[in-house]
Lab assay of single mutants.
Amino acid sequence: AEKTGIVNVSSSLNVREGASTSSKVIGSLSGNTKVTIVGEEGAFYKIEYKGSHSYVAKEYIKDIKDE
């Protein structure tokens, strides 16, 4: 089941290729951006990003809701 969340950062949140802080950064999301969460892996959520799937750190996503 998909969930949505809100990016909870003051500046921007790195979007990564994989579920690791050493993964390549492929983009960023600004605070209060709504994201669609399709899964989770460790400390990361797998999200829909620009037509494919990428990862963001869970600690920076708030207001998780089931869609």
Rank of each mutant, 00 (worst) to 15 (best):
D63N: 09
S30G: 09
G42I: 02
S54I: 05
E17R: 06
T36P: 02
V15R: 01
E67R: 12
K24Q: 08
T4A: 07
V25F: 04
V9P: 08
V25L: 06
N32T: 06
K65A: 11
D66Y: 14
G5P: 02
K50N: 14
D66S: 12
L29M: 05
L29F: 03
V15G: 01
E48M: 14
S23T: 06
L13D: 02
L29Y: 02
V25R: 04
A43Q: 12
G27K: 01
G51N: 07
S30T: 12
Y45N: 01
I26G: 01
G5F: 06
I37P: 00
G18C: 13
D66H: 12
G27I: 03
E67W: 08
R16S: 06
K24D: 06
V25W: 04
S22K: 11
V7H: 02
V15D: 01
S10D: 12
V35D: 00
T33V: 10
G18Y: 13
K3S: 07
G18N: 10
I37G: 00
E2P: 15
Y55W: 12
K24L: 08
A43M: 11
Y60L: 07
T36A: 07
G42K: 05
S22G: 10
S52C: 09
A57S: 10
K65Y: 10
T4G: 05
A19P: 15
I6G: 03
S22L: 10
T33Y: 06
A43L: 12
S12A: 10
V9K: 10
Y55F: 12
S20V: 04
A1P: 13
R16L: 15
N14L: 15
E2K: 15
S11V: 13
V9D: 06
T4M: 09
I26L: 08
K34A: 07
E17F: 07
A1V: 14
T36Q: 08
E40D: 06
G27L: 02
K34Y: 09
S28F: 13
T33G: 04
N32A: 08
V35G: 00
Y60S: 08
S22C: 12
K46Q: 08
E2R: 15
E17H: 06
V9W: 06
D66L: 13
K58E: 01
N8Q: 11
I26Q: 04
G42T: 03
A1Q: 12
V56G: 01
I26P: 01
R16T: 09
T33R: 05
V35F: 03
A43G: 12
Y45I: 04
I64R: 04
G18W: 10
A43P: 13
Y55Q: 00
S11E: 12
G18M: 11
E17C: 09
E40Y: 05
L29Q: 01
K58W: 02
G31A: 15
V35W: 02
S22R: 11
V35I: 10
E41Y: 09
G18F: 14
V15F: 02
L29V: 08
L29S: 00
V38H: 05
A57D: 10
E17G: 06
F44C: 04
E41C: 12
K3H: 08
I37E: 00
Y60T: 05
I26S: 04
V9Y: 06
V35E: 00
S30Q: 14
D63L: 15
T21A: 13
N32R: 08
E40L: 05
K50H: 10
K50D: 10
Y60W: 09
E2D: 10
I64H: 07
T4Q: 09
K65L: 11
S54M: 12
L29R: 01
I64V: 13
K3P: 03
E67N: 13
V9N: 07
A1Y: 15
I37Q: 00
S22W: 06
T33M: 10
Y49S: 01
K34G: 04
V56S: 00
T21L: 14
Y55D: 00
T21R: 12
N14V: 15
A1T: 14
S28N: 09
A57V: 08
K46S: 04
S12P: 09
K58P: 00
K62Y: 10
A19E: 01
S23F: 05
K3M: 11
S20I: 04
L29K: 01
S12E: 10
I26N: 04
S22E: 12
G42S: 04
K65V: 13
K58Y: 02
V25Y: 04
E40G: 03
V25Q: 04
E48W: 14
T21H: 15
Y49M: 03
V9F: 07
E2A: 15
T36N: 09
S28W: 14
V56H: 00
N32P: 05
S23R: 03
H53D: 05
S11Q: 11
K62N: 10
N14C: 15
S23E: 04
T36D: 04
N14M: 13
E59I: 12
D63V: 15
G27Y: 02
I61M: 04
Y55M: 01
Y45K: 01
G27W: 02
D66E: 13
L29A: 01
N14E: 15
T21Q: 11
I47V: 05
A57L: 15
S28M: 12
A19N: 04
E2I: 15
N32K: 08
T4I: 12
K62M: 12
K50P: 02
S11K: 12
V25C: 07
F44G: 00
K34E: 07
T33Q: 09
T33W: 06
K46V: 14
E17Y: 06
Y60R: 05
V38K: 05
N14P: 15
N8L: 09
G18A: 14
E59G: 06
G5Q: 03
S52E: 10
T36G: 04
T4K: 09
S11P: 10
G18D: 08
G5C: 07
Y49C: 04
E2H: 15
E48L: 15
L29D: 00
S52R: 12
A43S: 10
D63G: 08
K58I: 06
E17D: 13
G18H: 13
L13N: 03
N32W: 12
I64K: 06
E2G: 15
E41P: 00
I6H: 06
Y60E: 07
K50W: 07
L13I: 15
S54F: 15
K24A: 10
G27N: 02
H53S: 05
V9A: 10
S52A: 11
K65H: 11
V25I: 14
G51T: 05
S28T: 14
G39R: 02
V15K: 01
K58H: 02
G39Q: 03
S30M: 14
N8M: 13
E67A: 14
E48R: 10
V9C: 15
V38E: 03
K65I: 13
E67G: 13
D63R: 10
K34D: 03
V15Y: 03
K24Y: 04
K3I: 10
N32H: 10
S28L: 12
Y60N: 08
I6F: 09
E59A: 11
V15H: 02
Y55G: 00
N8E: 08
D63K: 10
N32L: 09
K62Q: 11
T36M: 09
S22I: 08
S20C: 08
I26E: 02
E48S: 08
I61L: 06
K58N: 02
H53F: 15
D63T: 14
T21I: 14
V38Q: 03
